[in-house]
Design a protein around this nucleic acid. Structure first.
Lengths: 221, 221
DNA sequence: CTAAACTTTACGGATTTCCGTAAGGCGGTA
DNA sequence: TACCGCCTTACGGAAATCCGTAAAGTTTAG
């Protein structure tokens, strides 16, 4: 069994529920809980540098903003930072996201080892995911179908990146710049322009205001 | 202390976290967990009819849809059904909602006894809420300000008219036209422009995309 | 009543969005 | 191979946005 496990989850009740279950159902020796991404990262970094690294991270994706400005604001930020440091630590994501494209990208781009979709069986699934991970296999909640992502009204992670940044007030020029900085291709302003234009058709939106309002209401952003 | 407590919360990890904490920190004798509103209601109804009613319900507001069609789909549905049956049971809501208007209506229209906003301290708050409720007092998470906070960020019907039309893809010119047609004053494009600009300051938005995304997320549009 | 403060409106300029055209790249296929 | 369809990118023009200035109207306080 894993010796050192870290749980990153901002809701205290959820965090505690996971920690208790892992203590009871698995024989994990050392379980650490963190409510902020920055704290989680620091703890992993220190342990890594001390030669006593964590074996497993269980993390949420979405973290509420607190009163203080934080460097790592989401589970993705956290995982990205950790993977630069340590490619051995196993990572299981435990989140409400159920978009297959999004989850696929976590496995492909962030090298996570398991994905559990929060729900009425997610604690049991988490235990299963950990057992699979122990044997170097991956785990995905059964209700997620990574293959048949219903093309129709699905957004891939690239679309999501653009839309999220637009909804945070960035211009297409700024988003293009950001993509170049993060070495994500394609990155030209023109391509972003065209992509958004195609999303107008796809979702029946008149313009960007309309599109953002629709997608936020659908919970996609 | 309360003798019979029911927890209605669809996320297994969260549910378990709450149950464990109440067992450890309070001396509750009988804690029951339910993942579906319908099940929670039935259990409360049966206990009530048997003359051994529950003393306390801790419930979430939002419940994921499952494969089967359910009668009670939200915490509000559940509370509404329970209050028709039993006005004595104490109800504490534990949810991510942080809209003061929404929470106010839970106290006023649904006669709840406490409101805890999910977050990094919500388990501790829940324990406090239960202790307050025991003494027939109400509890609300300190970060929620039922009186003031929302005055500042309130939208009048004129603002709402503009924002709703913007979010439906109309331009300021078109909205100006529409106002003139409906004989609502002021109606000039310039005034609309200025009003929206002031809303940027009020809500800390960079531009209209940002503003619309924020307001839809706040449930104001 | 009057001065100060705010609102409505117009206008103009820099920037951005929206959309059409067009050139070049890349993969599939007959 | 040559052709087709799709994606990326550049460019340009019309329309829209964002924001500053300014004049005229309205409200508020003393």
């Amino acid at each position: 069994m894993f010796k050192k496990i870290l749980i990153a989850e901002d809701f205290q009740d959820t965090n505690k529920g996971i920690a208790n279950t892992l203590e009871n159902k698995l024989q994990a020796e050392h379980i650490q809980e963190e409510l902020y991404c920055d704290n989680a990262f620091n703890r992993i970094k220190v342990a890594h540098n001390d030669g006593e690294p964590f074996d497993l991270l269980v993390t949420d994706l979405s973290f509420q903003e607190g009163p203080v400005e934080r460097r790592l604001k989401s589970g993705k930020d956290l995982i990205g930072a950790i993977r630069k440091l340590d490619s051995n630590i196993k990572i299981i994501v435990n989140s409400m996201v159920d978009n297959p494209m999004e989850i696929n990208s976590l496995f492909k781009d962030y090298k996570i080892n398991g994905y559990v979709c929060k729900g009425r069986n997610s604690l049991n699934e988490l235990v299963m995911a950990i057992q699979e991970t122990l044997q170097n296999r991956t785990y995905v909640s059964p209700q997620i179908n990574l293959n048949t992502s219903n093309q129709v009204l699905e957004l891939d992670s690239y679309d999501l990146f653009i839309l999220q940044n637009l909804s945070e007030g960035l211009t297409k020029k700024e988003i293009s710049q950001k993509l170049k900085e993060e070495k994500i291709s394609p990155s030209s302003e023109s391509t972003i322009d065209k992509k958004v234009g195609r999303l107008f058709d796809k979702f029946g939106a008149k313009n960007t205001h309309h599109l953002i309002a629709k997608l936020v209401k659908l919970g996609k952003i």
